[in-house]
Design a protein around this nucleic acid. Structure first.
Lengths: 228, 228
DNA sequence: TCAAAATTGTCATGAATCCGACAGTTAGAA
DNA sequence: TTCTAACTGTCGGATTCATGACAATTTTGA
């Protein structure tokens, strides 16, 4: 609970750039149509919506509460992300007809739509608009993930930090993350991030504060992120 | 034409793990319906199917020939991949209503289906099976790309090479790629790959030949890939 | 068959990054 | 207000990896 706020942002970023974002791929109208294809289920904290390796017979649309996604054994968890209301999980495995890729465990009390594969598919066959929307959402996510691959390949920490700052800056051009958190997000060391931020500060592209980075020159940051 | 065979394998892998695979396995009926929504176009070597930043009004399904996908200016190209027959390109941008993310240039003589957005969308509305198939294909691709992110994060070249060998080994437990090709696929240098292969060979997990790696101990490789 | 091209193997050097350590600073809670 | 935990800033050594260079081997095509 200590690092709750930071943790929250951290996981949100990871989830977004990783594949299971909190975006809502369906409009209210679509949801209405979909509602007939799903049941509402409630999960107690700590219980699983599904587990890695299980046959994927259903996807879930979260309504309330949050869910941790992780891979690997329960003891040696590799958390992939945490998602909240609006997120769709399990769809990749369900549509592909493969076992679940990760496990999904309720963090708090969770309410979710439960779409059974056998009920959903006929529904989608009748409502191409929903399918198309889902398609667009998945392609958007695919593009984001591809971009992430490009960033991980070859780029220096400096460029990665610049890229993250551009993406994460809020409406006041601020990024409220600790350097340690940024380091984890990028898979770099805290010291390297510190060095990179100093360099950006030296060039006058950003200002730094306690658990805060303020973007001064977004254009330059974009340029730095593209280098290398 | 010189590096044709290797190139083929190399790019097939890149395409598969990156985002533009031969991923549209549609049934004859679906293809027939699709055919009515698209024209066949031919492109001469060096000409563009589309360019980065252009308004994305169409997607292409390659029938013959190969296409380079790259980002950035023509002079300072950052090749994202090369795809061949069966690949679908431009769909992300077209469906999302955004400009093309990358440029696509014909390597040799290219024949492709050209799906105009305005003609395709109504067709999809009438043929949900096609849309659903497209959705499944994109989700499958998304999953692959996510896996790739996991492999690129934090791992040493040794672990990355081990992971690639496990994924790419054919039914005879062989991987017919040159070390230079493997290096490009992983975003590493040829020398590092050579060193990693030597280490794996020393441990008795693989044998190497000319443009060939034979997996002797898949279990150990999986363990090595998980390290770090 | 034989030369050209592709590939493997190896080495030295330098750059980027990680890691451990520690001092100074800030925020938040008692 | 004061204390404590979290965070920033910085240093030097160790490690990984890229780069360029070159010889040896294998394949390929004329």
């Amino acid at each position: 609970m200590k690092e709750n706020q930071t943790d929250q942002q951290h996981l949100a970023w990871l989830a977004r750039s990783f594949g299971r974002p909190d975006y809502l791929p369906l409009s209210p109208d679509d949801l209405k149509a979909l509602a007939e294809a799903g049941d509402i289920v409630k999960k107690y904290p700590g219980t699983h919506l599904f587990k890695e390796g299980e046959s994927a017979t259903a996807a879930f649309l979260l309504r309330e509460g949050e869910v941790d996604l992780y891979r690997g054994a329960t003891d040696r968890r590799d958390v992939v992300g945490r998602v909240g209301p609006g997120a769709v999980i399990g769809d990749i495995a369900m549509f592909s007809g493969q076992p679940y890729i990760s496990s999904a465990r309720a963090v708090g009390h969770v309410t979710a739509f439960h779409f059974d594969r056998d009920r959903l598919l006929p529904k989608l066959a009748l409502s191409p608009a929903i399918t198309l929307r889902w398609l667009v959402a998945s392609l958007t996510q695919l593009e984001r993930t591809q971009r992430r691959v490009l960033n991980l390949m070859h780029k220096t920490v400096l460029a990665q930090v610049a890229g993250l700052l551009v993406n994460e800056a809020d409406d006041r051009a601020e990024v409220a993350l600790s350097q340690a958190t940024i380091a984890i997000l990028l898979g770099a060391s805290r010291q390297s991030v510190n060095e990179a931020l100093n360099e950006l500060k030296r060039r006058g592209h950003v200002e730094t504060g306690y658990r805060l980075v303020r973007v001064l020159d977004s254009e330059s940051l974009i340029r730095v992120a593209a280098e290398d």
